[in-house]
C-alpha cells in the first residue's frame, strides 16, 4: 500500500514538473552537479550516492552531469558545514551527510555551522529504527532481563560518543533502567560489530537497516550469533528478525513512563527515520529545489535503481524533501528540558 501511494505521488509530481521546467532546464543544461558526500568512498552513504549518480541525470531537466565528491571529516559535519556556508548556492551542489548531525545541532554540540531547519531537504533513502541486539550466548533473551536493579549488565560496543551507537543504549538505560554498559572507541561500525562477532562484548546498538543490509549473517545462518531485544519507534516492522521484539515507545507506554521519556525516545530515533538524507543550501531558488526533489523521487522509483538496490539487499523507504523537513522540524522542537537531559546523558 505504502509503495502504491509512493508511485502515485511520483506520477503526480511528474505532471506538475512540466510547468516550470523551462528555465530550470536552461540552467542545468551542460552543467555539472556535485553530490558532496561527507564520508570516504565505499561506505553506505557513498554507495547510495553513486547508485543515484547513475540514474539521477535523466530525471533532472537539462540532464546535467552528476559527479560524486567525497569530503570526509568530522563524521560528515565538514561536508554539511561547507555546503551550507561556502559552496555556490545556485543548485549545482547537493550535500549528503548523516542525519544524526541534526541531533548535534539540537544539543548545541560544537562545530555545527548550519541550521538544519534552513537546509532545503531534498530526500532521504531509508526509514529505519534504532535497535539493540545481544549475543545469544549471553544469557539475555529479552530486554526485561537487563532491566532494573536485578537485571544483568550487558557490555555493548560503540564507535563514537554521542553518535547513534552510543546514544541508543544510554537512552534505553535512562528510560527503562536497562543496564547497557557502553564501551566507546571502536573504529567505525565495522569495528563495533567485529567486537560482537569475536565476543569481546555481548551486544551492540545500531539501526535495523544496517543489520538488514550488512549483517543478516549475524542473525541467521551458520554464523548467527545475536538476537534483537528492543527496537525504537511506535510499531515493529514485519520482519523475521523482529518476532516478539518490543517497540520502545509501546513498552514505555505499557510501563507508564512519562511524556518526556517518550519525547526523548522519539528524538533519539528521529534521525534514523530520515537515514541517508540529501539537502541543498538555503538560498537555492525554489524552482531548482523543486526540480531536484522531483528528480530524486523519480530516481528512487527508477527501475534501474531499484534493481541495484535490491541486489544490495537495501530495503528502500525513501522520503520526500517535505517529509524530511517535517521530521527535522519535529526533532528541533523537542522540549528544551528533554534535550537538556539527553545532552547530560551522552556526556
Amino acid at each position: 500500500m505504502k509503495k502504491k501511494l509512493w508511485c502515485l505521488a511520483v506520477v503526480l509530481a511528474s505532471f506538475a514538473a512540466s510547468a516550470s521546467a523551462a528555465t530550470v532546464e536552461d540552467f542545468y543544461k551542460g552543467k555539472t552537479i556535485r553530490i558532496v558526500v561527507g564520508f570516504g568512498p565505499g561506505g553506505a552513504t557513498d554507495t547510495n550516492a553513486r547508485l543515484l549518480q547513475r540514474v539521477l541525470s535523466k530525471h533532472i531537466p537539462g540532464n546535467p552531469t552528476i559527479v560524486v565528491e567525497n569530503k570526509p571529516g568530522g563524521g560528515s559535519l565538514l561536508a554539511a558545514n561547507t555546503v551550507y556556508t561556502t559552496e555556490p548556492r545556485d543548485g549545482t551542489v547537493i550535500a549528503s551527510f548523516s542525519s544524526h548531525l541534526v541531533v548535534n545541532q539540537a544539543l548545541d554540540a560544537p562545530g555545527v555551522r548550519f541550521d538544519a531547519a534552513k537546509y532545503q531537504w531534498i530526500a532521504s533513502a531509508f526509514d529505519s529504527s534504532a535497535m539493540c541486539a545481544v549475543r545469544t550466548d549471553s544469557a539475555v533473551t529479552r530486554i526485561e532481563d537487563i532491566m532494573g536493579d536485578r537485571g544483568k549488565e550487558v557490555v555493548v560496543s560503540s564507535f563514537g560518543k554521542g553518535g547513534l551507537s552510543h546514544i541508543e543504549p544510554v537512552v534505553f538505560n535512562a528510560v527503562f533502567g536497562a543496564r547497557f554498559k557502553v564501551i566507546t572507541g571502536y573504529p567505525g561500525g565495522a569495528g563495533q560489530r567485529l567486537a560482537v562477532k569475536n565476543s569481546e562484548v555481548q551486544g551492540f546498538c545500531t539501526t535495523f537497516e544496517t543489520i538488514k543490509t550488512l549483517e543478516p549473517g549475524m542473525f541467521e545462518g551458520p554464523a548467527a550469533c545475536c538476537k534483537v531485544i528492543i527496537i525504537a519507534g511506535a510499531d515493529v516492522e514485519e520482519h523475521r528478525f523482529l518476532r516478539g521484539v518490543p517497540a520502545a515507545e509501546k513498552l514505555a507506554e505499557k510501563l507508564g513512563k512519562s511524556k518526556d521519556d517518550l519525547a526523548m525516545l522519539r528524538a533519539m530515533n528521529a534521525p534514523n527515520r530520515i537515514s541517508l538524507p540529501v539537502a541543498m543550501a538555503p538560498g537555492v531558488s525554489e524552482e531548482r529545489v523543486d526540480a531536484m526533489r522531483r528528480a530524486f523521487q523519480k530516481a528512487y522509483a527508477d527501475l534501474d535503481f531499484q534493481a541495484a538496490a535490491k541486489k544490495m539487499n537495501m530495503d528502500l523507504q525513501p522520503k520526500t524533501g517535505v517529509e524530511v523537513s517535517r521530521i527535522v522540524q519535529e526533532l528541533l522542537s523537542t522540549p528544551k528540558p528533554v534535550l537538556a537531559r539527553l545532552k547530560e546523558l551522552i556526556q
Binding site: 552531469t65 559527479v67 565528491e69 555556490p88 549545482t92
Partner: peptide, 17 residues
C-alpha cells in the same frame, strides 16, 4: 574520469563553476 577538480576559492566566491 568525470572527476572535476576544485575551481579555487575565487571562482567559488564569485559563484562561477
Amino acid at each position: 574520469l568525470g572527476a572535476p577538480l576544485p575551481p579555487g576559492v575565487i571562482a567559488t566566491s564569485l559563484g562561477l563553476q
